[in-house]
Structure formats: structure tokens, C-alpha cells
């Protein structure tokens, strides 16, 4: 299967890439290509110009920034996160999700930021971003702006990025407590999208939750922010009552549809079970005392 013809550009700087996007009407950024190229082959997408950002230096870095936030550059591949030896201590949720995204070969190329930009309601990283209150740093001809993930995703496969803006980093705010939490995903086989997935980001002070976020994958027309469920955790210890309440609230805001992956009721039940499991696990993990 061949994509339609396009003009290929491989800029080596961000400013050059933005100029190319500004100069052409129907241009698209190519990052890992693991969503865009399959769509082009099926002719669901037929951009006139491809701006390949893979040759732009320094976009492949991730780590703690001077301001305490965690930054993930636009060319950080799923595999780089999966294999990172330092991610887990800073971002346990991301470390638990990384091996569950797509399959090992797709993870070599696919990027974290590209996945958020793709805005697939079944994307795993968007749920993590919601749970961690993350935002996207975008650069365009008029400079940079930061967009919270809830606002960034405008709908299924749609973002608020202007056609000549590039998402250059994902930003996860500086923690106010010790990070805990994790990601659970039900998939029929490796490489399948989630039947249902739950991302829980916690910040703890001893055994008390000081901040929480819950994002749900594949159970609605967009990534779901289960904010009430998360709010029910804050200020509390993770005892069975609190866990049960939060898990129930999360399942309540899921809007799954029955399909070949399972019935709506089943998926809602999976969400409840997953949220409860992640929280129970977090309650059990002894706090690392500094």
C-alpha cells in the first residue's frame, strides 16, 4: 500500500521546521510515524508536505528540569522510556505504562509526545498525562505556549495546536509529595489497543494522599479525566473504604461502548477493578522515607 505523493522535508532546526509548516497549507509533522504512516498508507491522511522532525537535535531528552518539573522531548521514543533506569524513581506511573504501549518494535520509533498529539482516545500516554496534570509545550512562529492536556486534546484525533505549531515537550509538574501510582491496561494481545486502561497518579505525604489524578483509556470518545474519583483520595489514607469510593466514582464516569473487545458493563467493571488494584498496591508499597 502506498501513501499519496507528498513533498518531504527534513529540517535540522525547530525554526526551520516551523517555517516549513507556515509556508505550506497542508503540511504535517512526522515524529515516530507509527500512527501517521499507517494512516497515510490507508489514505485516511494525505498531507501534501511532510515535515520530518527526526533530524532536529536535542528533542530526544527526558529528565528533571531545573524548575523541578519532568520534561519529555518530542523525540523521546516509547522504548527510551521503557528502558530508562531513572524514570521509575521520578515517574512510577510512566514507568509502569511504558512497556504496555503498542509492541516492542513500534516502541522503537513511536514517541510519547507524538502519541499525545495523535489524541487517540485509546492512547495510553494521554491518560497518564491526565493523571499527572501534564501539559504540552508548543512552539510556533510567535513563540512558545504551554497547554494543559485537558485543553490540548480538543476531541478524538484533534488537538488545539495550530498547523504551524510543534509540540516540543511534555511537561509534568514538580511534585508536592512522593510520587506513587501506576497504569493497568487490558489488551487482547500485545500490540492491541486497550480494551480499557486506567492511569493513577498519586503524590503522598507518608501514607496520606496529597494530590491525585486518574485518567481512563479506551472508555469514551476521548481520554477521560476522572477528577471526582481523584478528589475523593486527597487528604485521605488509602484504606479500603476510600479505595472503594474512588474506584466506584471512576467507573461511574467511564462511557464505554460495547464492541468486539467487550460489553460496556464489562469495561466499566474493568475500570473499577483496575483503579482499586492500583490504589491497593500503592497502599501496600512501603513509603520510602528520606
Amino acid at each position: 500500500m502506498y501513501p499519496s505523493r507528498f513533498q518531504y522535508e527534513a529540517p535540522t532546526s525547530l525554526s526551520e521546521a516551523i517555517a516549513l509548516l507556515s509556508a505550506h497549507d497542508d503540511a504535517k509533522v512526522l515524529a515516530g510515524g507509527q500512527s501517521l504512516i499507517p494512516m497515510m498508507k490507508l489514505r485516511f491522511a494525505a498531507p501534501a508536505v511532510i515535515v520530518d522532525i527526526n533530524n532536529i537535535p536535542k528533542l530526544d531528552q527526558h529528565g528533571v528540569h531545573a524548575d523541578g518539573s519532568y520534561r519529555i522531548g518530542a523525540l523521546v521514543r516509547h522504548a527510551a522510556l521503557e528502558k530508562s533506569t531513572t524514570l521509575g524513581e521520578h515517574q512510577p506511573l510512566l514507568a509502569s505504562a511504558a512497556p504496555l504501549v503498542a509492541d516492542p518494535i513500534v516502541r522503537t520509533r513511536g514517541t510519547f509526545v507524538g502519541s499525545v498529539c495523535h489524541a487517540d482516545p485509546q492512547g495510553d500516554w494521554a491518560s497518564c498525562m491526565v493523571a499527572l496534570d501534564g501539559s504540552i509545550l508548543a512552539q510556533g512562529p510567535n513563540g512558545r505556549r504551554t497547554i494543559g492536556v485537558d485543553e490540548f486534546v480538543a476531541g478524538p484525533f484533534q488537538t488545539v495546536l495550530a498547523p504551524n505549531e510543534i509540540a516540543i515537550q511534555a511537561i509534568i509538574p514538580k511534585p508536592v509529595g512522593t510520587r506513587a501510582g501506576g497504569y493497568l491496561k487490558l489488551e487482547r494481545r500485545v500490540g492491541d489497543f486497550a480494551t480499557a486502561g486506567a492511569a493513577v497518579g498519586l503524590q503522598m505525604d507518608g501514607d496520606t494522599v496529597v494530590q491525585a489524578g486518574i485518567g481512563l483509556t479506551g472508555v469514551g470518545a476521548r481520554t477521560i479525566n476522572a477528577s471526582e474519583a481523584a478528589a475523593a483520595l486527597v487528604g485521605n489514607r488509602l484504606d479500603p473504604d476510600v479505595i472503594g469510593t474512588a474506584a466506584g466514582l471512576a467507573a461511574g464516569v467511564a462511557q464505554p461502548r460495547s464492541d468486539h473487545r467487550g460489553s460496556a458493563d464489562y469495561k466499566r467493571h474493568v475500570i473499577e477493578t483496575f483503579v482499586s488494584r492500583i490504589l491497593t498496591d500503592a497502599a501496600r508499597t512501603p513509603e520510602k522515607v528520606a
Binding site: A10, G33, I37, P38, K41, I50, N54, V106, T108, R109
Partner: peptide, 17 residues
């Protein structure tokens, strides 16, 4: 591709330059 496995049906040849 530079030692890591990729699906060659999902990369453009120009990208291998």
C-alpha cells in the same frame, strides 16, 4: 535500524538516509 528493530513497512526509505 541503527541496531534497533523497526517495521520497515512503516518508515519511508528517505528516512533511512
Amino acid at each position: 535500524f541503527d541496531g534497533a528493530p523497526v517495521k520497515s513497512c512503516t518508515m519511508f526509505a528517505v528516512q533511512a538516509d
